[in-house]
Amino acid sequence: MTSCHIAEEHIQKVAIFGGTHGNELTGVFLVKHWLENGAEIQRTGLEVKPFITNPRAVKKCTRYIDCDLNRIFDLENLGKKMSEDLPYEVRRAQEINHLFGPKDSEDSYDIIFDLHNTTSNMGCTLILEDSRNNFLIQMFHYIKTSLAPLPCYVYLIEHPSLKYATTRSIAKYPVGIEVGPQPQGVLRADILDQMRKMIKHALDFIHHFNEGKEFPPCAIEVYKIIEKVDYPRDENGEIAAIIHPNLQDQDWKPLHPGDPMFLTLDGKTIPLGGDCTVYPVFVNEAAYYEKKEAFAKTTKLTLNAKSIRCCLH
Score class of each variant (00 low, 15 high):
5 H>G: 08
6 I>N: 12
9 E>Q: 07
10 H>N: 09
14 V>R: 00
18 G>D: 01
21 H>Y: 09
21 H>T: 05
22 G>Q: 09
26 T>M: 03
35 L>A: 11
41 I>K: 01
45 G>I: 03
46 L>W: 05
48 V>Q: 01
56 R>H: 08
57 A>W: 06
57 A>M: 11
58 V>L: 09
58 V>W: 06
59 K>Y: 08
62 T>I: 13
65 I>S: 07
66 D>Y: 12
67 C>W: 08
75 L>D: 12
76 E>L: 11
82 M>P: 11
89 E>P: 05
93 A>T: 06
94 Q>P: 06
97 N>V: 13
98 H>G: 14
101 G>T: 06
104 D>Y: 14
110 D>V: 01
111 I>L: 12
111 I>R: 00
124 C>Q: 05
126 L>D: 00
131 S>W: 06
132 R>A: 14
135 F>N: 00
137 I>A: 03
137 I>G: 01
137 I>S: 00
143 I>W: 01
144 K>V: 06
146 S>A: 14
151 P>D: 08
154 V>F: 05
154 V>R: 00
156 L>P: 00
156 L>K: 03
159 H>T: 11
159 H>R: 11
172 K>Q: 15
174 P>S: 11
174 P>T: 09
182 Q>H: 03
183 P>S: 11
185 G>L: 04
192 L>S: 06
199 I>D: 00
204 D>T: 02
206 I>W: 00
209 F>N: 01
210 N>Y: 03
215 F>S: 03
219 A>F: 07
220 I>F: 04
225 I>Y: 11
232 P>V: 04
238 E>C: 08
239 I>C: 06
246 N>Q: 07
248 Q>P: 01
252 W>C: 09
255 L>Y: 05
255 L>N: 02
258 G>S: 15
260 P>M: 04
260 P>V: 03
260 P>K: 04
264 T>L: 06
275 D>L: 08
277 T>S: 07
278 V>A: 06
278 V>K: 03
278 V>S: 04
280 P>L: 02
282 F>K: 13
283 V>A: 02
284 N>R: 02
287 A>S: 14
288 Y>D: 14
291 K>M: 13
293 E>C: 09
294 A>Q: 00
296 A>L: 09
298 T>R: 01
300 K>C: 06
306 K>L: 08
310 C>P: 07
310 C>H: 12
312 L>V: 15
